[in-house]
Design a protein around this nucleic acid. Structure first.
Lengths: 227, 227, 227, 227
DNA sequence: TATGAATGAGTGTTCATTCAT
DNA sequence: CATGAATGAACACTCATTCAT
């Protein structure tokens, strides 16, 4: 059995080596520029061996991207669990997401690339796990009554991930490192405007009392006809 | 002179034909998949002729993308000018942007592709004109006192374009046509939360006076029995 | 008539401009690398105009090479005529030839190139005029009794031009500027060995005195019997 | 081990086939005219395979030329070793060289072509081995006292190879097969004029008679002791 | 004569993938 | 499972030459 285990371990190790070599290669120049021959050499396996683990170059590419998103998801879960307040969780998640996008921008671009070039929609699937972390935060906020139940989760995602993606991309395009704190602040203001509509000014008292007072006066007024 | 004009017109026509053929070709499968030979054939010119107008395939590609953004910019300016209220301008621009992204999504992807694959930063430049339309709306809103002057334009762009881009992309990824109205609504809520912070509760005088008026009303109303 | 002359002059000027531009272009990178478009631009004519003067690129190339050899021939005739002694004429011609080969090595290579690549043997024809200068020197030397009549002119050419060509080429290959004087000296020694067999031993003095001395020794020796 | 050997043999065979096919192709029309596709087909390998053995077309070309010079060198060494007298070695080498140039003139032209077109100086390197055979003959002649030590080897090479190259080229240009014996004779006369200065004026008669006279006088002298 | 825009044939090289060993 | 030599399809770009003006 130890032999079987050893064999399995060897396989796992080899797969890991391939994945790492491939990640490095794809990061350097994208799907097209990476050479299977170089990946094989870096992983210290023969070219043919790559095809024992992955059907083709694209499959290897997808595996790399998938693994990346899995890493991200785990990291996101970790930082989210460190907080209890949904609002803080949201803010923490935003910071984490922005940092990761900025740090591994190449891999995010690869995801876009995959979505663009690929016939498969695997990219969407990959992000799914990550998006669920976000959805979880929203859900918890709702069940705790901190967030309004009326906001559509899909739209919230658009706001959240769209803004962060775009902010990261334009920052990178301008060569800036990050102005993370400010964008996070702005994003939170925007998010909370949707998640907690008029939450703080909603002291319903004034309105209700006004309604009631007017209603009563109207009743009186009817009793005393004008004139 | 009519001869000169004719020549120029011929050149312009030929360039237009090339550009159209190229747009079609690039839209079909991106930069890589498009074949110069096919573009030439579709434009009814010889392959060599393409190179009289554009240095190489990539230059032709960039020209296609640039023209697309120019079209967009013009369209955006038009819809914005049709409104006078900055808030409505913003909303109109959002709708227009979303529609165009959804409609020409391939060309948006090509822009991303360009940003990803290209060594040139042309992509950013192309968008610039379009972004300026947005900036113009914000600026007008500020100068009219409708928007707060404190919001950073860059961050606003991130919110605006990021959300729209992402919404379009994810809608397309899910195969949906569009849920435009709802995302626009959400986006506007978010934007205004940043652009008009506590706009309605602002000027506490109103609230206080309202409070006082209600109190007096209540006092009066209580003097007259409910029945 | 002055108008006709003007026209002719214009044509001649244009042809000259083309030839000069072409020479420069071919010198830079040979037949293949030169671009008709660049030649046209340098000559300040349209591309099509080149073809009014020369059937095609190769014909232009040949014209350039031919003109070069004509220049050389004229120069050779000049230096040869400056001397009267055939031996000195030979030496002068050798120096001149070597200098020109070294100086315009590119054009010599082009001649070789023409011989190699071209289907026409034009190259040989071009050199003909130059070779005739050499033949003339030899002929004069013979008729003056300075050179032996028995040497085959063709073989002499092989010796003369072959050595000079090769010397120049190998010097250039080694990046040396020239060791001209020594090669000229050696070549002359070799040439004269063929053209003036036993030429230098013709200092009869030494031989005669030696002959006389031996004769006297023999006379003495004979007086004393061998045994 | 026999398997390994088999593999190596296969590789060697394949390389040989490529080299032969390439030689044939390059001989037909030079570097430019030869088509990699045709070479591959002739060698019965795929086009890509050519690039497993040679970096590119030019490298293949150089390999062909290099092999040619290696062949020549071996042949030259053989004929030289068949003689012992340096003068005869020189003459034999001249004949061999002339024959080979005439026979494989295309490959010689290719060498020139390489020198002309190539950025690399490989051509010179290739000839080096061959030239050394010549240098060896000269050196031996010197150490045996047959050749004068004063002649510069470089100049001798110019004379030897230059004359032979040129003779072959002009003979080929004139369509003649060869007038080898006469040119060899002339060349040897010229070479020896440089290598054995005053060789022929050594009219052995005088020397011999001097020797004899002195010998006889010595004999007489012994009979008549001094005093 | 002169122009110069248009032509379009022609080819070296790469690299993902396979398969005999 | 592993190897790595062999495959071969695929394609942008150049540039001498032409011809309508």
């Amino acid at each position: 059995m130890s032999r079987t285990q050893t064999r399995r371990e060897k396989l796992a190790e080899k797969e890991e080596a391939i994945l790492q070599a491939a990640t490095k290669a794809f990061l350097l120049g994208g799907l097209k520029a990476a050479r299977m021959a170089e990946i094989a050499k870096a992983a210290q396996v023969a070219e043919g061996t790559l095809y024992l683990y992955y059907r083709n170059k694209e499959a290897l590419f997808e595996a790399v991207v998938a693994r990346h998103w899995d890493d991200l998801r785990r990291g996101a879960q970790k930082v989210v669990r460190a907080e209890t307040d949904p609002v803080l969780q949201l803010e923490t998640l935003a910071s984490y997401t922005l940092d990761r996008i900025m740090g591994d921008r190449k891999l995010f671009e690869l995801t876009l690339y995959l979505a663009h070039a690929g016939e498969g929609l695997t990219a969407a699937t990959d992000r799914l796990g990550y998006v669920r972390v976000f959805d979880g935060v929203i859900e918890r906020g709702r069940s705790e009554g901190v967030f309004t139940a009326s906001a559509n989760p899909k739209l919230l995602r658009d706001l959240f991930f769209g803004t962060l993606d775009y902010a990261a991309r334009s920052a990178l395009a301008r060569g800036e490192d990050a102005a993370s704190s400010r964008i996070i602040e702005t994003l939170m203001t925007a998010m909370l405007a949707v998640l907690q509509p008029r939450a703080e000014d909603r002291d319903p008292g004034v309105e209700e009392r006004l309604e009631r007072a007017v209603a009563r006066l109207e009743a009186v007024a009817e009793r005393y006809p004008a004139g």
